[in-house]
Nucleic acid binder design. Structure first.
Length: 496
RNA sequence: GGUUCCGUGGCCGAGAGGCUAGGCAGAGCUCUGCAAAAGCUCCCACAGCAGUUCGAAUCUGCUCGGAACCUCCA
């Protein structure tokens, strides 16, 4: 089996993944700014990294996954001049900023849980690391890459580049072009150059969120927190840094500059960026006003949606798309995902009950064995090729066909050997549950209840009381359960 | 304007020089009291034009169409 390859934004190519200190892997992902509800686009990014986290663990790596909560420093508007997003919302609602933070942090976590994204190992907040942010700012100043202007501290991009560092290398930008590109921006104010960015901002009188610093009362710049928290919990160098593509510039570019500026150490080995979720071909974003919120999806209340879709339907849909491709939201796509998801869950129930007893009388079907082995290796090769869940899922569905065929007797399970049976069962279960993170959404474990009712159903059938049979079936159907009459048994499934 | 990227069957969406992706929808068959489910079969697509090649959806060039970043965004 080929080794895991990941697409590194820094080098613009797929590279073999070799951790700095195996079996440990450090992964940092930029989390949400909690001034509002997360939308489905945000969810996509976190789900993509959840899948990466799960797969790395599946491969046996001990992953420390750090995902921050931004609760200060993220400004509205451009050029380091706007209001703080959290403070603005707090003012608007007449609440403490930390009440805003609490509300949307809780919302965020509950949504992540619904989508079955595993919680990160550490979920640090920016306000919890003010001291470290001040210290890092001081270090950068000591190294000559920052300057003070009226109580604010700015990163000096041209000094940084004069020292042979390349600001812009991650996003493929040339500083000269940046300057011309941003010439029409006003409000550069006290910055020496438009490409410089704030490490620490002096708080104006009205500014609510403020802390003491060597430069007077102020607050940290947005980019600084990630540099501080990633290095604090993962070390000056770590393996993976992730985030949405829209964070490449300026956020991640600034992070690199800050780390190099403070520690003279290149912080990240692999930069991974997820692509955007689109609606009618356009990026979903709060500012464009085209965002769909998770609860709008789950309740079907958004105007673009004709019905409600579950969290697992959403997850399944995401699995069908590679994380570096844009993914378009539509009713048709969601409907297709819903059916696919239910099929997989019905398969999971079947495969869990599937038993095997070695029967040497029955000749082994080498063709089936070879096909199953091929499918399984394709699933792993898909995942190893930069976490291509779409390929892996296609393989899973092919494996499901085999499983269904064994289940309904089209193929004889005893024509497999023990090893292939175990491979089929284990691969299916671990991909569905551990790697893909799909789970049964129908709350009740209907198993035992169904057993009783199916017995009644069976009797009615046996007595050719078809009126009652139809009635029972209609009842089941109204509860979203379909009864399946098979050659030698009766089974049930959730309606697709 | 600069920098990237994309255009795949009715829809969604992988792939990336020769090999059936997959899902949904549609058609047929098997099974069945009738269904449903499941299985099997069919639907052989790669924006257009020109080129490279024995061979191109995949490489090159141009044209058309769309997107992202350059400003807050996952």
């Amino acid at each position: 089996m080929q080794a895991l390859k990941v697409y590194n934004t820094l080098t613009r190519q797929k590279e073999t993944f070799t951790p700095l200190n195996p079996p440990y892997v450090g992964m940092y992902v930029c989390g949400p700014t909690v001034y509002n509800y997360v939308h489905l686009g945000n969810c996509r990014t976190f789900t993509s990294f959840d899948l990466i986290y799960r797969y790395l663990q599946h491969l046996g790596y001990k992953v420390r996954y750090v995902r921050n909560i931004t609760d200060v420093g993220h400004l509205v508007g451009d050029a380091d001049e706007g209001e703080d997003k959290i403070a603005k919302k707090a003012k608007l609602e007449n609440l403490e900023p930390m009440e805003i933070v609490q509300r949307y942090t809780l919302d965020f976590r509950s949504i992540m849980q619904l989508i079955n994204n595993l919680p990160p190992s550490i979920e640090p907040t920016a306000t919890g690391h003010i001291v470290e942010q001040i210290e890092m700012t001081q270090k950068i100043m000591q190294n000559g890459f920052a300057y003070e202007a009226k109580g604010s501290i700015y990163f000096d991009v041209s000094k940084y580049n004069e020292a042979n560092h390349e600001y812009g290398k991650l996003s493929g930008r040339v500083v000269d072009e940046l300057i011309s590109g941003s010439r029409d921006l006003d409000g550069q104010g006290e910055k020496q150059a438009p490409e410089d960015f704030a490490l620490w901002k002096k708080a104006s009188k009205e500014h609510i969120m403020r802390w003491n610093s060597p430069w007077g009362e102020g607050f940290p710049g947005w980019h600084l927190e990630c540099s501080v928290m990633s290095s604090k919990y993962l070390g000056l160098q770590f393996d993976i840094h992730g985030g949405g593509m829209d964070l490449k510039f300026p956020h991640h570019e600034c992070e690199i500059a800050q780390c190099v500026g403070a520690n003279d150490t290149e912080p990240v080995k692999y930069w991974l960026h997820t692509n955007m979720l689109t609606v009618n071909g356009t990026k979903m974003s709060k500012s464009l006003g085209n965002s769909i919120l998770p609860h709008e999806l789950f309740t079907g209340t958004h105007t673009l949606l004709t019905q409600a879709y579950s969290a697992m339907t959403l997850r399944f849909m995401m699995l069908q798309t590679h994380y570096r491709s844009t993914m378009d939201m539509s009713n048709d796509a969601l409907k297709a995902a819903q059916k696919g998801y239910k099929r997989v869950m019905n398969g999971l129930r079947i495969v869990k009950k599937m038993q095997y007893q070695e029967n040497l009388e029955i000749p082994k079907d080498e063709k089936q064995i070879a096909e199953i082995e091929k499918i399984v290796s394709e699933m792993y090769e898909g995942m190893n090729d930069d976490f291509n869940t779409a390929v892996a899922l296609a393989g899973l569905l092919n494996l499901l066909k085999k499983i269904n065929s064994f289940h309904n007797g089209v193929l004889n399970i005893n024509s497999l050997d023990q090893k292939t049976f175990d491979l089929t069962k284990n691969t299916f279960i671990s991909f569905v549950e551990d790697i893909f993170g799909l789970r049964e959404e129908n709350q009740a474990d209907l198993g035992e209840v169904m057993h009783v009712f199916l017995e009644i159903y069976r009797e009615a059938k046996h007595n050719k009381n078809f009126e009652q049979v139809d009635k029972l079936r209609a009842h089941f159907k109204s509860l979203g359960v379909v009864v399946k009459d098979m050659k030698d048994k009766i089974d049930w499934a959730f309606e697709e």
